[in-house]
């Protein structure tokens, strides 16, 4: 295995695009190193992007924030601006692993590891986050967070491409977001079900727009349009929330595994979507 720690993104892309064999980008390493140690992956090249200064920055942009790929969960959690703007995204990212893992794990890494249970992803999807990708020759493209993961462990990134940053857009007035997950313990587990909700209210208090995303209930994070529609135009009365929960459950196509059953995930997806919607609603009302 070769270890490279370039100091610019162009160098990183250059190294990656010229490499043969199995390559891995190392940000926080909390997934990659575990996979290496367990023999799940034996990379020929690891490119550490933490020596690229810009990757560590959180910068304001058009009323939102651009978060570098090497920004750790701990660093994000300490940023009052992002926390105030998209509390659901920050909370979701902070749920990843322990304090120790937070010291290293990154939101971008969580996204690119492409686990269906990734905590930050439903929140990023509902926040409408935009992912900035750099490719060979410095070519840049931007895609919604929703389009990064294509299946368990699979992304839409091409050979030589690296995610440089994620733009958390400006948040419309009277809007809020929230993310909840179910785990058997209070910490240290992988989500059995995750639910992110972002919504915007009309001045009259009815819901103008909503997004509901679910994690760990399908091969990728699901954006559940019928669940969102169930609350648009409502004041999130019980019936609307019931409909949202039912739609969320109906959208699930989970598996039985060591972490949960199909029956359990399906039901709890509705429960959590409902609870997250209530929190997002409270935040939108301020």
């Amino acid at each position: 295995m070769r270890y490279e720690a370039p100091s610019t993104i162009d160098q990183a892309v250059e190294i990656l695009s010229q490499a043969d064999g199995i390559t891995r980008v190392l940000a926080g390493g909390t997934d990659v190193i575990v996979q290496m140690r367990s023999g799940m992956v034996e990379p020929d090249l690891v490119v550490d992007i933490k020596r690229i200064d810009a990757m560590h920055e959180i910068t304001p942009e058009d009323g939102g924030f651009r978060v570098g790929a090497a920004v750790s969960g701990a660093q994000l959690g300490e940023h009052d601006g992002v926390k105030a703007l998209w509390p659901g995204v920050v909370e979701a990212t902070e749920l990843i692993g322990s304090t120790q893992v937070q010291g290293r794990a990154t939101m971008v890494g969580n996204l690119c590891n492409a686990s269906p249970a990734a905590d930050s992803v439903p929140a990023l999807v509902t926040a409408g986050a935009i992912v900035s990708i750099v490719g060979p020759g410095g070519a840049r493209r931007e895609i919604p967070a929703y389009e990064v993961t294509t299946g368990p462990g699979k992304t839409s990134l091409e050979k030589g491409e690296i995610v440089e940053s994620i733009l958390l857009p400006a948040r419309p007035a009277r809007s809020g977001d929230a993310y909840l997950r179910f785990i058997p313990r209070t910490e240290m587990d992988i989500a059995v079900v995750g639910a992110g909700v972002a919504l915007t209210l009309h001045p009259d208090g009815t819901c103008a727009e909503a997004k509901v995303a679910l994690g760990a209930v399908a091969e990728v994070v699901l954006l559940v349009e019928p669940a969102a529609s169930a609350i648009v135009g409502t004041r999130l009365e019980d019936e609307a929330l019931d409909a949202l929960a039912a739609a969320a459950s109906a959208a699930c196509r989970p598996i039985d595994d060591k972490r949960g059953t199909i029956e359990f995930r399906t039901k709890v997806a509705g429960v959590l979507a409902r609870r997250a919607a209530v929190i997002a609603h409270d935040r939108a009302r301020g």
Binding site: G29, T30, I33, K50, Q100, V101, G103
Partner: peptide
């Protein structure tokens, strides 16, 4: 557990090379 630049981390989840 160790600290790296005052940040708490698991030293099993970090490469030795990264310590430079």
């Amino acid at each position: 557990s160790v600290t790296v630049d005052d940040r708490l981390v698991c030293s099993c989840l970090m490469l030795g090379a990264e310590a430079d």
